[in-house]
């Protein structure tokens, strides 16, 4: 059996303190993905906890993949961990536990019923709270966060990418320009067509494509759909 899959390193594992250590975290996670046989890989940038990535941080993330692919040698073997009893039993354990969740959700009447009952939200909130308690108590180690800390004034000062408000003004100007030049009646007709599809069982996608071809904006398309479907209000689960 072949399973094609994409891997992204875990943004939630990145830390604001001693941010260069994130490069090490990303490397270990990316290597794990490659050892697991991933076909596609996204490495997070080390500054992602603090801002949108700078050019430098993005380059380091790319170089991390290139070191694994072209220097480390792990990619020379199809399945370097094949036959490891430990890794195999971890895979089995994860499979068992995932299937147990799937069974439980089926018994609740499927995922929509489960979400309406707040089940997955509660599981995530519980796990997050438990994890934070383990960090607070030191039961779980986060290097540079609850162990091996340094005073903030000694910490690495990252170059933070700042987006100037000029970007917003420029985009607004482009939007005004597009709206001034498009065929307004064609846009109106296309949006009405979307609304019609939303009110029936028809596939909305051809209508959306038609609207985009006439330069309807994402905002206008969403607003049209909202008139029919409303907006999802999450049931807050703590």
């Amino acid at each position: 059996m072949m399973l094609r899959f994409h891997t992204q390193t875990a943004g939630c594992s990145l830390q604001a303190q001693q941010p260069l250590v994130n490069i090490v975290r990303v490397t270990i996670q990316a290597l794990a993905g490659v050892l697991g046989g991933t076909q596609s890989l996204h490495t997070d940038s080390f500054d992602e906890t603090l801002c949108l990535p700078t050019e430098e941080a993005v380059r380091v993330a790319l170089r991390t993949q290139q070191v694994i692919a072209e220097e480390s040698g792990v990619a020379h073997t199809i399945d370097p961990l094949g036959g490891s009893y430990f890794v195999e039993q971890l895979t089995d354990k994860m499979e068992r536990e995932a299937l147990a969740y799937i069974d439980r959700i089926e018994q609740m009447g499927g995922i929509i019923a489960a979400i309406e009952a707040g089940f997955p939200q509660k599981e995530i909130a519980d796990a997050a709270f438990h994890y934070q308690q383990q960090i607070d108590s030191g039961e779980k180690t986060l290097v540079g966060v609850n162990k091996y800390q340094i005073p903030p004034e000694e910490d690495h000062q990252l170059q933070i990418l700042k987006i100037s408000s000029e970007v917003e003004q420029r985009q607004l100007a482009r939007l005004r320009d597009v709206k001034a030049r498009r065929d307004e009646s064609a846009v109106r007709a296309a949006l009405d067509r979307i609304e019609q599809c939303c009110r029936s069982d028809e596939n909305t996608f051809p209508a959306i494509l038609e609207a985009v071809r006439h330069y309807a904006t994402v905002g206008e398309i969403c607003a049209t759909m909202k008139t029919v479907f409303g907006v999802y209000e999450e049931a807050t689960v703590l």
Partner: peptide, 23 residues
């Protein structure tokens, strides 16, 4: 919302009335 929910729950567990708004 991970952080907000953790803080809301911690304050509630400390005995306060917490209203969490959602996203």
């Amino acid at each position: 919302d991970r952080g907000a929910k953790i803080i809301a729950r911690a304050l509630r567990d400390a005995g306060h009335e917490v209203i969490y708004t959602g996203l």
